[in-house]
Simulated assay, not measured.
Amino acid sequence: MLADELASDKGTGMTTQRTFSQEDKEYEALYAGRASFDGMTPGEVLIPWDIGEPQRAVVDLARAGGFSGKVLDVGCGLGENAILLAGQGHEVTGVDGSPSAIGQAAKRAEARGVRVRFLTSDATELDGVGSDFDTVLDSGLYHCLNDEQRLAYAAALHRVCRPGATLHLFCFAESVPSGTPIVEEALISEANLHANLGRHWEIQDIAEAVFATSFTRELLAKLGTAGAPDTGTRPGPEAIQVDEHGRVLTPMSYVRARRR
């Protein structure tokens, strides 16, 4: 849910200005290389959530024994987290709505000698993904949906998981600084999580976490963009943090829930 303008030719040769919002998603175009952020060099591709490796929060969760049985990585993107888990011996199905993302994820898994079942499917329906999953990973999908879709998503996950299954969900926290290119509507409150998940999933814990992005302070300055204006309800740009590689860190909420 990025507020940056997007230049997309959509195969017409024309450049139009687009934004990442709940009403205007261009994820397939981005994964397919048909779109880029306004202000970037022509042909330069940036996928902000792809850091070329699993998120550290997911690595730590795996080390702590958070995954067991059949694992569903929903909204898997380019597959880094799914590949990590499969490499640790888990039976993993990775699902994404972008065919281009799924194709690239499969190539990454093959190159690393890891077997993952990658499928294209709508997360609000999850048709054809199978059933009886023991563990679900949502690494930044929930905040890409609107509330109607979140309700359908929670129900779809419930349908494909066994009773007592565990859901590990990471979503944008309300503490995301205004200087990052993330719109206000994508910041998720605890009330929102309970309202949309509660019928099908018992939330057991909500904790703070961080995800790395492929943004740097320099790149943000080059793009010259930010998310929603600072309304005083979220930290300002001075709160932006980076990791040891200079990658901008995004505050996340980590939700652990149990299937009812």
Rank of each mutant, 00 (worst) to 15 (best):
L119M: 14
S253R: 15
R159W: 00
G65N: 07
A154H: 06
T120V: 15
S68L: 00
V114T: 14
D9P: 01
D4S: 14
L137D: 07
T120A: 14
C76F: 08
G179H: 09
L151A: 13
L2H: 12
I206K: 06
T213Y: 06
S121C: 12
V255E: 08
L46I: 12
D9A: 06
F67P: 07
E238N: 10
L193R: 04
A228V: 00
A109F: 08
D134T: 13
P229E: 11
N81I: 03
I47P: 01
Q241Y: 00
G97E: 02
R159N: 09
L187R: 15
H168G: 05
D50Q: 03
L84W: 09
L6C: 08
T250C: 12
E80S: 15
T213V: 02
K25G: 12
I51E: 08
D24S: 15
A186G: 11
G39D: 07
A239N: 11
N196G: 02
L84T: 03
R150H: 04
Y27G: 01
L46G: 02
R56C: 00
G79Y: 08
V255G: 01
Y142V: 03
C76G: 04
R34W: 05
L119T: 06
D205F: 00
L223G: 14
A82M: 04
L197A: 01
V210T: 14
F211N: 01
G236A: 15
Y153A: 05
D205Q: 13
S21K: 06
A165I: 10
K10P: 00
V71T: 05
S36N: 10
G13K: 08
V183R: 14
A226I: 05
V74Q: 02
A226N: 04
V59I: 13
A173L: 10
T135W: 04
F133D: 03
D50V: 07
T93R: 11
P237D: 05
R108M: 09
A239E: 11
T216W: 02
I83A: 08
L167V: 08
C76L: 04
M252I: 14
T216V: 08
D122C: 04
I83K: 09
H245Q: 15
P48D: 06
L187S: 01
G43S: 07
A221S: 13
E244V: 10
D24E: 14
E208H: 13
I83G: 07
E80R: 13
I83M: 02
T231I: 02
A3F: 01
R18Y: 10
T231D: 15
T41R: 14
